[in-house]
Design a binder for these strands. Structure first.
Lengths: 149, 149
DNA sequence: TCGATGTTATTGACGCGTCAATCACACTAA
DNA sequence: TTAGTGTGATTGACGCGTCAATAACATCGA
C-alpha cells in the first residue's frame, strides 16, 4: 500500500471541513425558522411519512441509522418539548409507537421550506450538474468500499 | 431559484452520511491505537508543529477553526489526562502558552500511523486520482460559495 | 409450563460542544 | 493616572451522543 498523498489528504480534510461548515449554517437557518435542529428534522420526517402505519422506535432508529439509545434520549427530549408522543404497541407490549403532535407537525412544516432551500442555495447552487453527478458517484464508491472493509 | 432536485438531495445526504460513517470508523481505529480521539489529534498536531515558538490558545483555536470556549474545555480535559500543559505567556499575562507532554507526544506518535493509514485505506483507496481531483474542486467551490453567502 | 435466549426500549454516567457570562489583563485617550 | 474599551481565556449550564447496564416482554424448545 502506498502512502497517503498530499492531494488525498487535502481532499479528505476539505470534505470534513466543508460538510461541517455546511451543517452548521443550515442548522442555524432551520433552527431560526422553526426551532428545530437538523436532528429533530431527521427524526420527524419518517414519523410523518409513516402516517397511520405504526412506526416503532427501533424501526426508526434503523431507518435513520441511529443508535437505539441515542434515539431514545432524543425522543425523550422531543417529547418534553411537545413535538412527539409515544404510545404502546398494540401487539408487542415491549414496543413504543411514535406519533407526531400537532405542534410537531406545525414546526416541521415551518422547517421544511428553509431546510430544502438552504440545501439548494448553500450546496446545490455552488455545483454544476456534472459535479453533482461526480459527487454522487464518489459517495457511492465510498459507501461500497466502506461496506466491504 | 429552481427547486432542489432528487439528484441534488441524494448527493447532499450521501455526503453527510458517508463522512459521518468514515469519521466514526477512523476515530475508532485511532482511539484503539493510541487512546486519542480525532479531536485530540487535531489539537495536538499544531502544538507539536509549533515546536519552540510559543503557541497561544487563541491562535490554535483559529488555526483549527474552533470556538475558543470549546478549545478551552477540551484543553482542560487533555490536561487532566496528562497530554498537554498550559503555562503563562511571558509578555502577555492574559495569555496561555501550550505545550505537549512526553506522554502526549508518545500518544501522538502512536496515533499518526493508524490515522494516516486509515485515511488511505478507507477513503483514498476507494477513489481514483480523477475522483480525488474532482472532489477537491467540489470542496473548493463549496468553500468559496459559502464564503460569499 | 417453564426456562433459556433474544429483542425492545430505557436509563445513568460521562465526555463533548455551544452559548452566555465572567474575569483578568492590555491598550488608548483624556 | 485613570476611565473606558478591547482582547485572551475560562467557567457554568445545558443539550447532545456513546457506552454499558438493566428492565420488560417475546419466543421457542424441552
Amino acid at each position: 500500500m502506498t502512502r497517503l498523498t498530499e492531494a488525498e489528504e487535502r481532499a479528505w480534510s476539505g470534505m470534513l471541513n466543508v460538510t461541517a461548515a455546511l451543517r452548521k449554517r443550515m442548522g442555524a437557518i432551520v433552527y431560526e425558522a422553526a426551532g428545530l435542529s437538523e436532528t429533530d428534522y431527521t427524526v420527524l420526517v419518517p414519523i410523518v411519512y409513516a402516517g397511520d402505519t405504526p412506526l416503532r422506535s427501533s424501526e426508526l432508529a434503523e431507518a435513520i441509522n441511529w443508535d437505539r439509545s441515542r434515539l431514545s434520549h432524543h425522543l425523550g427530549r422531543m417529547e418534553t418539548r411537545g413535538l412527539i408522543r409515544r404510545t404502546q404497541h398494540s401487539e408487542d407490549n415491549r414496543g413504543a409507537v411514535l406519533h407526531i403532535t400537532d405542534s410537531g407537525l406545525a414546526a416541521l412544516r415551518q422547517a421544511s421550506g428553509p431546510h430544502l432551500r438552504s440545501i439548494k442555495s448553500l450546496f446545490a447552487d455552488a455545483l454544476s450538474a456534472t459535479q453533482i453527478e461526480a459527487l454522487t458517484e464518489i459517495v457511492e464508491d465510498l459507501e461500497r468500499h466502506l461496506a466491504t472493509h
